[in-house]
């Protein structure tokens, strides 16, 4: 079982990485989403896939019986929500940048770090 999950995880991470290295801003973002999914899986499998019973304490009991590990679940749950918020924000930001710059090519989005003019240090202001 762990082999299947681990290979899937590796594939997602690899795909995410490859997309992140693209020059297309939107592909980068989708890559980031995949990357995040892969890391969530990593966190989740870190707690071991021991049981398929949800960690719910039965009525009348005071302690957890043998169930799935609840700790990584809590972490992953938080991570999912946070990465969703981050993605939505990044998307809006990307949209704005693309509309302002007129390009979705990351190689052309260099307002903050313009290519150096004198060959030594970046120019202080963007030549307009």
């Amino acid at each position: 079982m762990i082999w299947a999950v681990a290979l899937a995880l590796g594939t997602v991470i690899a795909a995410g990485t490859y997309l992140l290295l693209s020059r297309d801003l939107l592909r980068c973002l989708i890559g980031l989403v995949l990357f995040g999914n892969g890391i969530n899986l990593l966190l989740f499998t870190g707690g071991r896939l021991t049981s398929s019973l949800p960690p719910i304490i039965d009525a009348g009991e005071t302690a957890l019986a043998v169930t799935a590990n609840p700790l990584p679940q809590a972490l992953v749950l938080t991570a999912i929500v946070i990465s969703f918020a981050l993605m939505c924000f990044s998307l809006v930001l990307a949209l704005q940048i693309i509309q302002l710059a007129g390009s979705d090519d990351v190689a052309r989005l260099r307002a903050s770090e313009p290519p150096s003019q004198d060959g030594i240090k970046p120019a202080l202001e963007e030549p307009s």
Binding site: W3, A6, G10, T45
Partner: peptide, 19 residues
């Protein structure tokens, strides 16, 4: 990019398996 992506994914897979 492809090479780095594959090596990175493979190393994480190995990490999970060994863990």
């Amino acid at each position: 990019a492809l090479a780095v992506a594959i090596v990175f994914g493979a190393s994480l897979t190995a990490l999970v398996l060994l863990m």
